[in-house]
Design a protein around this nucleic acid. Structure first.
Length: 503
RNA sequence: GGCCCCAUGGUCAAGCGGUUAAGACACCGCCCUUUCACGGCGGUAACGCGGGUUCGAGUCCCGCUGGGGUCACCA
């Protein structure tokens, strides 16, 4: 266990190396807002050959869970964001879970006590609550009165001795002002009289978030704090803490929040908010990460498609937007569609393989012919899809005949009085082709339509419906080639029967 | 309510004193076509309001309005 806790003087030694951190609390899934903040941290560090640290803020043990922690790790792994130091990979400044750092916090508290920068407060939560309410009613700021600050030290000591519950508050400066140097927003100044003596140590003997976070940022030599905008108002408190620790104050960057389409805070009722949900919905990590970058940052040159590697090059913290951004799923889906079609078929095949096995559409010892066929099939389907689910939807008919025909399709393509007869005719003609391939098939269809005196489309659409049961898919002649002569023949006849039966 | 941040089309977002105010998504046409997509072409659509400063303001300043954040023994 680390014992040397007051290490501020060492900081100057490795001043040049940038260290940033992402510090989620493991109380749920990874939120897309958090994912974006983490991504910006990651980009900034990678661009500057710095280090990204994953720290787990689990001081609230009752709300934290191991499952949530695993989930967050999973999400990051999926997104392709790695950490240089974390509970998993370790590092020189561990442990990286706040729940395992109590001794360090205690040491910092003790130091503050010795320097007289903190004092015990015996006010009960009820009293404070009442005070806040009356202040609110009278139009005053709901701040702590500072009552216990002036308690005689002897009395304070006596009451603690007597076992009275106490919290510890920081003695903040009453006069002057505190300026936050923010890379995104510039200098933001707060009057110190606005900051009350906030609690740094809870009555249950654990540190508050503000305290633990600042201690860790000092201990872990964090140089840049890149976090969500909601912390901007808390920053003067943190600065006062850093000053109380005689520590160097990190550089800040408060990234804007992500809003729901109604401009309110993004929540569950607006649909998917976690990385995990998007993953399950078939969104690709490349697409999500790309979209998150675009939300609040412009790579310039009218670029929309930006990989992680490209983002490392062009990202500039100073150019991150100051205003909150509304989340637009449509653009995410557009990006996803792009990435989905651009990636390799073999990767798609690999990812779909377990599902294919499960459906028994393939076996572990598949012939090379079947594999080649499957690969070609996926290649065609991929180009008609926006995501994997679309491929699955179109896939079934290549492994078994359609059990039903699309309703709208039936109304549109199976109504003509001669359809059944035409399908039978086509079924017979298939046997005449020397090679069952796309080009000769197309010739056959065009010639036949001419002979019949109808449009080629009048043959093509019913055939597609007959063969696949649906009205969408790759070009018909590719579909037929993939299906094979015999299967096409059978399905055309089955469809003809179906039409005659239902008339 | 105090304090803080923010404000260009429906959404993201260029612009950083002089532009016909980019581009992308979405939407609407048209083209391509064998369906759905993709692709191509075109279109609708924005500087919240009011004062200044300036020869000139989306760009600078002030006010207002609106939105957001924060003021917890949550993080």
């Amino acid at each position: 266990m680390r014992k040397s806790t007051m290490t501020t003087e060492i900081r100057t030694a490795d001043k040049t190396s940038i260290r940033v951190r992402f510090a989620p609390s493991p109380t749920g899934t990874l939120h897309i807002g958090g994912a974006r903040t983490a991504y910006f941290n990651w980009l900034f560090a990678r661009q500057n050959q710095g280090k990204v640290i994953l720290r787990i803020d689990d001081t609230d043990i009752s709300r934290s869970s191991e499952a949530s922690y695993r989930q967050i790790l999973d999400s990051f792994a999926w997104l392709g964001l790695d950490f240089d130091e974390s509970p998993e990979v370790g590092g020189a400044y561990g442990p990286y879970r706040q729940s395992q750092r109590t001794e360090i916090y205690q040491a910092y508290l003790r130091k503050l006590q010795e320097e007289g920068l903190t004092y015990p407060c015996f006010c009960t939560p009820e009293e404070l609550q009442k005070e806040r309410e009356t202040a609110q009613k009278e139009g005053r700021a709901p701040r702590y009165s500072g009552r216990c600050r002036h308690l005689a030290p002897e009395e304070a000591a006596r009451r603690i001795e007597a076992g009275e519950r106490a919290v510890f508050r920081l003695k903040t400066d009453v006069h002057g002002e505190t300026t936050v140097h923010d890379l995104i927003r510039g200098d933001v100044t707060f009057q110190n009289e606005e900051i009350d003596d906030f609690i740094i140590w809870k009555a249950d003997g654990t540190p508050t978030y503000h305290f633990a976070s600042c201690v860790d940022d000092v201990e872990m030599r964090i140089t840049h704090i890149i976090r969500a905008e909601e912390h901007l108002s808390n920053t003067p408190r943190h600065i006062q803490l850093f000053q109380a620790f005689h520590a160097e104050i990190p550089v800040f960057a408060h990234v804007p929040m992500i809003l729901a389409p109604d401009r309110s805070k993004l929540s569950k009722r607006h649909g998917a908010t976690s990385v995990e949900e998007y993953r399950e919905a078939g969104i690709l990590p490349e697409a999500l990460v790309n979209y998150l970058l675009l939300l609040g940052f412009s790579p310039g040159e009218n670029r929309e498609i930006v990989s992680r590697e490209e983002a490392i090059e062009c990202f500039r913290l100073e150019r991150v937007a100051k205003h909150a951004a509304v989340y637009d799923v449509k653009k995410l889906e557009w990006l996803n569609q792009y990435y989905f079609r651009t990636r390799s078929v073999d990767q798609l095949l690999y990812e779909m393989w377990p599902g294919l096995l499960e459906k028994a559409w393939v076996s572990t010892e598949e012939s090379r012919e079947k594999l080649a066929w499957l690969r070609t099939l996926l290649q065609f389907l991929q180009q008609k899809s926006r995501q994997e689910a679309d491929v699955w939807n179109m896939l079934e008919c290549y492994f078994r005949p359609p059990v039903s025909y699309d309703d709208k399709g039936v109304k549109k393509h199976f109504q003509h009085s001669e359809t059944a007869q035409r399908l039978r005719q086509l079924a017979d003609l298939l046997a005449t082709l020397p090679v069952f391939a796309a080009w000769p098939l197309e010739q056959l269809y065009r010639q036949t339509s001419e002979q019949i005196g109808c449009k080629a489309a009048d043959l093509i659409h019913p055939t597609r419906l007959a063969l696949t049961g649906i009205t969408v898919g790759p070009g018909l002649f590719d579909v037929m080639t993939l299906l094979g002569r015999k299967e096409c023949h059978n399905r055309l006849l089955e469809a003809a029967n179906f039409i005659e039966k239902s008339n």
